[in-house]
Design a binder for these strands. Structure first.
Lengths: 251, 251
DNA sequence: AAACGGTGTTTGATATTATCGAACAATGAG
DNA sequence: CTCATTGTTCGATAATATCAAACACCGTTT
């Protein structure tokens, strides 16, 4: 491990967590570094555009170059761009927030969303992780993993309870995953948050592997069971359409 | 300057430029580094999620963490999120591609776009720079800069000719900027690319400073002068609406 | 106006680390 | 099985990053 690089990245992370720009001394205090060490690291990061210093008050913030590289990372994933029109079509048709989650290693990350026009919406943040055992998208990907992969994941996550509806029993979760695999979609029935319900379906790549999922979510006042029933076919169709763009042969 | 940090960032940039994952040896060759040096740097970057190694073939690519931080940078700018619904409304209404460009230091960067449904569209890349003298967004921000700021920028850019319509004469450009300021919008009339026309308007922050711009662009076959005339009021209104969300008092 | 406190910035000695040479492990091709 | 290439490891040391000390700058207080 290269300590200097670790320190530089720690500086980026401090700035990421901070809601406002920070000065050399403040960053040094937070990371227990000498001021001149911090200054040298910042100078290097600044020369590459990773941070910017406000000439007015000398404080530092994250630079646009990170956005450029980050956007490049995202474009590389290909999925968000191809999926975007499909998400927009769903929102247009059903007026509820639609999410796209991608599976990476052992994490599921929200990489896009198109919000519905309603004032009451599901809150989520692009770039943040999706929980696997108690979200529609999480369960719909889990259901299509190989048994080995599923075991690995189930051995590594905690079935934390968020609401009385959260599935915290492993056997019950597995049973539900079997059902989800059979029906081709999953429902989050107030499992992560009381008052929030969604329906989700998995997206497959050209090898037929579940690599992502989409969901339509909303408050239970609108997301009634009747409404959910109406959404099943469209969300499955949309997930399949996206899968097709990824080269997946129709199942 | 901290050499190790420079090297680590150079690795990220090599991976950014590469269309496919790269191995340790390849990265070392491109950066003239020793393999074990490169390996140490990659190991550190990987531990922080900045790169990932494909266990199948040992090759490295940019990691999702960069996307997370990059998205955070972007959210910090506030603009893209608040502007997005306005852009979507314009696209819905006029069926042409809409762009959002933000001004940072002496650069203008595309930070969002909503593409119209038409097959023939203006090509642009999020995160890339917008030219200042020959794009609608560029000119519409230039027109509202302070004289000092404008002089600095005009002294630093080259009025490169892209088409016979590109303004390459400084006096002519200044004259047009005066006109743009008066009318509150700008037009790119096949100045950056033959066959491409757009109308743009500036966005102001709470201090009344032009910090961004939006544009509607399309091929001249659809973007006729009649069409342009129809778009002026809506794009100015939209830019003003976005400015209002940023706290700008109506001018 | 001067003093004070705090921050950003600079410089050079040296403590510490990053580098690299050598070697090994792993893998795919022949 | 052999060979070539790449990824990975390890430790000596060359080179760098670190930090102590000091300075420049700026806003606040007296």
């Amino acid at each position: 491990m290269v300590q200097s690089v670790e320190r530089a990245i720690s500086i980026l992370e401090v700035l990421e967590r901070s809601s406002e720009p920070l000065g050399v001394t403040e960053i040094s205090n937070r990371l227990a570094l000498h001021k001149s060490t911090t200054f040298g690291l910042l100078h290097t990061l600044e020369s590459k555009g990773f941070v910017n210093q406000d000439p007015e008050n000398g404080k530092y913030k994250l630079g646009l170059r990170l956005f450029e590289i980050g956007e490049n990372v995202h474009k590389r994933m290909n999925l968000r761009y191809q999926a975007r029109p499909f998400l927009q079509k769903l929102v247009k048709e059903f007026n509820e927030t639609v999410h796209l989650v991608v599976k990476t290693d052992n994490e599921y990350v929200y990489i896009d969303k198109v919000e519905g026009p309603q004032a009451i919406r599901m809150y989520s943040q692009i770039g943040k992780r999706a929980l696997m055992h108690c979200t529609g998208v999480g369960k719909s990907i889990l259901a299509f993993l190989s048994e080995d992969e599923l075991e690995d994941i189930l051995n590594s996550i905690e079935l934390t309870e968020f609401t009385p509806n959260t599935i915290t029993n492993l056997t019950q979760l597995k049973d539900q995953l079997v059902k989800i695999k059979k029906q081709g979609y999953s429902i989050d029935d107030e499992e992560i948050e009381i008052g929030l319900r969604c329906v989700a379906a998995p997206i497959f790549n050209h090898n037929g592997e579940a690599i992502a999922a989409i969901s339509i979510a909303g408050p239970t006042t609108r997301m009634t069971y009747e409404r959910i029933a109406e959404l099943i076919v469209p969300i499955k169709e949309t997930a399949l359409a996206i899968s097709s763009t990824l080269g997946c042969k129709r199942r």
